[in-house]
């Protein structure tokens, strides 16, 4: 995958993810001030999708305006609206803006996104595996039993299956910790990304974290490019 192709694909996917979440903020139940912030975000994102599809619009200005809009939104909510989703959104936006603003350093800017994507899985696995409650399955049981995350009461019933949750918890930890190893070959990386996307899809279904699914997928082209650019030349 070329750098231009990977950046174009990430730009297209991010624009579409921003359109999806902007529309959620434009429902009539939202406050007028909130809707006012997401109308420009929707329009800029639609233009960005157009630019990624080949319309003659310079993406740098759209990205810069989206960045300003994102900062205003962060101030409006006094922080992220949906935690890690907002952080990944802003990270992708910052990396793409930097890559377009500093063409001589664009490999560094876009590669940083790929590196952070790898870390997002590895560190998530590390903080779990060092916690005894995750190792003995109690933490995942608590997530289903009383945390605010299960999206339906029937999903809480999973807490009654401790062995299943213990196996699921270890499967998640092993996968997250082993993710950097998947960079060794193209087939293993593609398989790892398919598993990771399935994991995000399961989180979206069970916990209602739909935005995480879409935004993490947006960063996948960066790691596919980074593997070719950095990892393959290092391998014998």
């Amino acid at each position: 995958m070329t750098l231009d192709g990977a950046m174009q694909l990430t730009t297209l996917m991010m624009g579409m993810a921003f359109i999806q979440q902007s529309l959620e903020h434009l429902r009539p139940a939202a406050r007028p001030a909130e809707r006012l912030l997401f109308v420009p975000r929707l329009m800029l994102s639609a233009l960005l999708v157009g630019a990624a599809l080949g319309l003659p619009i310079p993406p740098l200005w759209l990205l810069a305006m989206l960045l300003v809009n994102h900062m205003v939104i962060l101030h409006f909510f006094a922080g992220p609206y949906n935690g890690g989703y907002d952080r990944m959104s802003l990270l992708i936006l910052l990396c793409l803006t930097a890559a377009h603003a500093m063409p001589q350093h664009r490999e560094l800017a876009f590669g940083y996104l790929g590196a952070q994507l790898t870390l997002s899985y590895f560190i998530s696995g590390w903080v779990k595996v060092v916690n005894p409650a995750w190792r003995n399955g109690q933490a995942l049981r608590d997530v289903f039993r009383f945390s605010a995350y299960p999206a339906g009461e029937n999903i809480r019933g999973w807490a009654q299956h401790p062995r299943l949750l213990l196996a699921m918890g270890w499967a998640v930890m092993v996968f997250e910790l082993a993710f950097p190893l998947a960079l060794a070959t193209r087939p293993t990386l593609i398989l790892a990304l398919v598993i990771a996307a399935t994991f995000h899809g399961a989180n979206a279904c069970l916990f209602g974290l739909n935005r995480f699914f879409w935004i993490w997928l947006c960063a996948y082209p960066s790691i596919l490019w980074l593997q070719e650019r950095v990892v393959f030349p290092l391998l014998p």
Binding site: M71, L74, H75, G79, P80, G84, D86, R87, M88, S89, L90, L91, L94, Q116, L119, S120, I123, S124, V127, K128, N131, A133, A139, D142, V143, S147
Partner: peptide, 17 residues
Amino acid sequence: ALVLPALIPSWRFFDAV
């Protein structure tokens, strides 16, 4: 303070319930 957690994320998802 709002940008730094995105630029240098901690990625500590579900570390404790």
